[in-house]
Amino acid sequence: MSAVLFFIAAIGAITGAVGVVMLRNPFYAVLALVAHLISLAILFLLLRAQFVAAVQVVVYAGAVMVLYVFVVAYVGDQGDTLSERLRGTGPVASGLRLGGALVGGALLIELLIALLGTGLEGIDHYGAGYSEAHPEAQTFGTPAYIGRLLLTRFLLAFEVASFLLLIAAVGGVVLAYRRGGIREEERDALTPLDLIRPLGTGTMREGIGRRGS
C-alpha cells in the first residue's frame, strides 16, 4: 500500500517538476508547482513528517503560491518557451540544448552517486524502528514533537527565522512600493465633509479656541 502511494506521489512530483521547467505559460508553471508541492506533501506523510506535510500544503501550496499567482497576473504573460528556444537554430539554441542537458545530466549523476553511494546502511532500510523502549518515537513528527524541538533545542534558529521573515516583509514593501507617492490631484480632493463643517475645523486655530473668522 505504501509502495503504491509512494510511486503515485513520486510520479506526481517529478511530472510537476517537468511541467514547471517546460511549460510556456508562467501561470501553468505555477499550477504545476502546486501539484508538485502537494505530491511532495504525500511523500512527507509517508516519511512520518505530519507537521511538515501540513505546513507544506497550508503555507507553501496555499499562501506562497497565491503570491505567485498575483504577480503573474500583474506582470502578465511574458513567458519564453523552453522548447521554442531549444528548437531554434543558431549557436544560442544549440549551446543551450547541449549545455542544459549536459549540466542537468551531470548534476543528476553526481547527486545519485553522492546520495546512494554513501555507504550508509540505513539507505536500504525503512528508517529507524519504533520500539516500546522509546515512547518518544511514537510521537515522531507530530506538532507537539516539532514544537518542543523548536522551543528548546532550536530556539535560536526559530527566533532568527522569525526575524528573517520580518526583514523580508519590510524589504518586499520597500521594493514594491509605488515610487513618487500620492499624485497631486488625489491629495487635494474635496470631500462632502468639507462643505458641512465650520471653517477652520481641525486646524491650530480651533485648538486655541478661536473659530472661524
Binding site: A49, G127, A128, Y130, A137, F140, R153
Partner: peptide, 11 residues
C-alpha cells in the same frame, strides 16, 4: 530525518 528517527532534519 526518518532514517535516523531524529526530528532535527524536520526542523
Amino acid at each position: 530525518s526518518r532514517m535516523w528517527g531524529n526530528g532535527d532534519g524536520q526542523v
